[in-house]
Amino acid sequence: MRIFRILNNNAVVVVDGPQEKIVMGSGIAFQKKRNDIIPKNKIEKIFVLHEQSSEKFQQLLATLPEEHIEIAENIISYAEGHLNAPLSDHIHIALTDHLSFALERLEQGIPIQNKLLNEIKLLYKKEYEVGIWAKAEIMEKLGIEIPDDEAAHIALHIHTAKMDAPSMSESLKQATVLRDFVEQVESILSIEVEESSINYQRLITHLRFALNRIEQGDQFDPIDEDMLDLIKVKYVRAYECSEQIAGYLEKEYGIEFPSSEVAYIALHIQRLLK
């Protein structure tokens, strides 16, 4: 392979037949110029992207600090190993761009917040572990301490880059619905939900599966009428809260829970009350 364009010390563009490819490797362009041959032992990654994506990636590689690019690539490599799954090539653009901007903000003293931190930690546990690994890696390599909120942002980027994962907007919507649900519970019942409690985690897990079933159009298991009546009578506050939130979610998000699910959710809310 011969160099067509040098992007930075660790990335070049080559022309291979009709395709442009981005080739990356530590010091791959050091003391090189156009038309020089790239040693095979220097090649670590090769990308073939769509034309528009390729231009965006080349622009990032040419303009962002090399240490930010290197950190992003380390995180992606670790994520693929930790999740034992390949990630979409677009993650090299999305995560690199996001991470560099986040690091610049932190260096300028601008705080990073993530209102969906607790939901992301529960929904995407393995991906959040990647975010925590990235936190330690960034501290070691750059001396910048990122907050757990940013680790959650990284986790969400990793999750949506999985080949079978929903889009970023869909993942954010689910996490937002769960956050909204808990806030409604706290408001209606005048309680503060302990987000580290096992009952909170059980509720979030149950809601997550329920939302997935609604999204996929799956049927819910029916509930025995006697059981439904018992829940309504025995756990009045919890059931009324569940019913009120179900109406809210239908109005705000178009999410419709069947009566059986309203009852099962009431049982989880009752645990929070206890």
Rank of each mutant, 00 (worst) to 15 (best):
V14E: 11
V14M: 08
V15E: 13
D16R: 14
D16G: 09
G17L: 12
P18M: 05
K21C: 10
V23R: 13
M24R: 01
S26E: 12
G27R: 08
G27N: 03
I28F: 12
I28P: 12
A29N: 03
A29I: 02
A29H: 02
A29G: 00
F30Y: 12
F30K: 13
F30Q: 13
Q31R: 14
Q31K: 15
K32W: 08
R34Y: 10
N35K: 15
N35G: 11
D36I: 03
D36E: 07
D36T: 04
K40V: 00
N41D: 14
K42N: 12
I43P: 11
I43L: 11
K45V: 06
I46V: 05
I46P: 05
F47S: 11
F47W: 08
L49H: 02
E51N: 12
E51F: 09
Q52P: 01
S53T: 04
E55L: 06
E55P: 05
E55H: 04
K56N: 03
Q58E: 15
L60R: 07
L61S: 02
A62W: 10
A62C: 11
T63D: 15
L64T: 00
P65V: 02
E66Q: 10
E66S: 09
E66P: 04
H68L: 07
I71G: 00
N74M: 06
N74H: 03
I75R: 13
S77F: 09
S77M: 09
Y78P: 04
A79V: 03
G81L: 14
G81M: 15
H82M: 12
L83R: 11
N84M: 05
N84E: 04
A85E: 06
P86G: 01
P86C: 04
L87D: 11
S88L: 14
D89I: 04
H90E: 14
H92A: 03
A94H: 11
T96C: 10
D97A: 12
D97R: 14
D97S: 14
S100E: 03
A102Q: 02
A102S: 01
R105P: 00
L106T: 06
E107L: 05
E107P: 02
E107V: 00
Q108L: 07
G109P: 01
I110H: 00
I110Q: 00
P111W: 05
P111L: 08
I112M: 14
N114P: 11
N114D: 12
N114W: 11
K115C: 01
K115R: 02
L116R: 07
N118V: 01
E119P: 03
I120F: 15
K121W: 13
L122P: 04
L122G: 06
L122T: 03
L123T: 08
K125A: 08
K126Q: 09
K126D: 06
E127G: 07
E129W: 05
V130T: 02
V130W: 00
W133Q: 02
K135S: 08
A136S: 08
E137D: 10
E137C: 07
I138M: 15
M139F: 13
K141L: 01
L142F: 09
G143H: 10
E145W: 07
E145G: 10
I146W: 08
P147N: 09
D148S: 09
D149F: 00
E150P: 13
A151Y: 03
A152R: 04
A152V: 05
A152S: 01
H153Q: 08
L156K: 12
I158P: 13
K162H: 07
